[in-house]
Computed example of a mutant assay.
Amino acid sequence: MMIGQSVQNHRDEVSERGEPTAPPLMHVEDLRVRYRNGAIGVHGISFDVFPGSVVALFGPNGAGKTTTLRAVSGFVRSEGSRVVNGEVVLAGHNVTNSPPHKMARRGVSLVSERRKIFPNMTVHDNLRAMKTRVPKRRQIELTEQIDDMFPTLLSRRQLAAGRLSGGQQQMLALARGILSDPKLLLIDELTMGLHHSLHESLFDAVRRISNAGTAVVVVDESAGLALQMADYCYLMANGRVVQSGPRSLFEDQAMVAGGYVDGREAEQ
């Protein structure tokens, strides 16, 4: 299925009240995460992600957004932390505390913050490394999609990834996530440290990914653009969800901005 095709799995399967009627791809219930030092980083959060939808997590630094993404993708275990309560259900299977490689096999891909790529490898080799479990025909389709979304990478395939600009490295990190052919793509800080002129093209790529049927959960400091793209939003503060709802509920951006700067404002 090519990016840009209209896939309405989530958007069409809703009731007259605007509530989804299809089961979620991922259901997270009462999630509680304990760090290695014993501190609790996430306090009983719950959320759903539906096929083909974009979910945005908002909140100030330290709200628990990154911990949440790492918990549901299995990477939190690599830091000596773990889920100590609640459950993560993916396509009907309980995957709580599953390691990252098993989550990847089930179709979950995490694009970590700060552009995690192999800087000494070429762009081509960075991308080729993500194709190992994808059928050949699907590899070709995904590569065509990436070339269409990020033509600047196409002309730099033989360049060492470390020589790309910050924006190009983020494109590469996102392209690597897409090439794993995920059912669920988790993106942590999509535009962190990048010039604002690059933000819109990256968010456009995310929307095109979701339009092709991949569910996306995105965390980003650019709350305005994330809000425009999202189908459903969760506002977090101090490791808890303090507000959630469809995009329309958050279109008063003062509320999002307030919650982003100071979690106490969001809880009032």
Score class of each variant (00 low, 15 high):
residue 78 S to Y: 12
residue 157 R to L: 15
residue 171 M to F: 07
residue 103 M to E: 04
residue 256 V to N: 04
residue 91 A to Y: 01
residue 27 H to E: 13
residue 229 M to C: 13
residue 84 V to Q: 09
residue 224 G to D: 14
residue 78 S to M: 12
residue 63 A to C: 06
residue 88 V to A: 05
residue 94 N to C: 06
residue 15 S to I: 02
residue 251 E to Y: 13
residue 175 A to Q: 09
residue 153 L to Q: 12
residue 153 L to R: 11
residue 47 F to W: 13
residue 113 E to R: 02
residue 72 V to M: 02
residue 19 E to F: 12
residue 235 L to R: 08
residue 141 E to Y: 03
residue 207 R to M: 03
residue 124 H to L: 13
residue 134 V to D: 10
residue 37 N to W: 05
residue 70 R to I: 01
residue 36 R to C: 00
residue 210 S to K: 06
residue 244 S to M: 10
residue 228 Q to T: 11
residue 242 V to N: 07
residue 18 G to E: 10
residue 208 R to C: 00
residue 51 P to A: 05
residue 23 P to G: 03
residue 191 T to D: 06
residue 113 E to K: 10
residue 139 Q to R: 14
residue 230 A to S: 15
residue 84 V to E: 14
residue 73 S to Y: 08
residue 40 I to L: 01
residue 157 R to V: 12
residue 13 E to I: 08
residue 263 G to P: 06
residue 57 L to V: 05
residue 88 V to S: 03
residue 119 P to R: 10
residue 116 K to A: 14
residue 134 V to I: 15
residue 262 D to I: 03
residue 109 S to I: 06
residue 64 G to I: 02
residue 122 T to W: 09
residue 197 S to L: 09
residue 259 G to S: 08
residue 90 L to V: 03
residue 105 R to Q: 14
residue 199 H to F: 10
residue 154 L to M: 10
residue 175 A to K: 11
residue 248 S to A: 15
residue 8 Q to C: 04
residue 59 G to Q: 11
residue 237 A to C: 01
residue 267 E to V: 14
residue 245 G to E: 12
residue 218 V to P: 00
residue 243 Q to R: 13
residue 75 F to D: 01
residue 217 V to P: 01
residue 198 L to P: 03
residue 208 R to W: 00
residue 178 I to L: 00
residue 5 Q to S: 13
residue 85 N to E: 15
residue 266 A to F: 09
residue 28 V to E: 00
residue 169 Q to V: 11
residue 215 A to I: 04
residue 103 M to G: 02
residue 252 D to F: 08
residue 178 I to M: 04
residue 108 V to P: 03
residue 135 P to S: 05
residue 120 N to D: 14
residue 25 L to K: 00
residue 32 R to Y: 09
residue 160 A to M: 13
residue 164 L to S: 09
residue 211 N to Q: 15
residue 166 G to V: 07
residue 108 V to W: 01
residue 41 G to V: 06
residue 19 E to R: 13
residue 94 N to S: 06
residue 179 L to T: 07
residue 246 P to E: 06
residue 3 I to A: 08
residue 175 A to M: 05
residue 159 L to T: 15
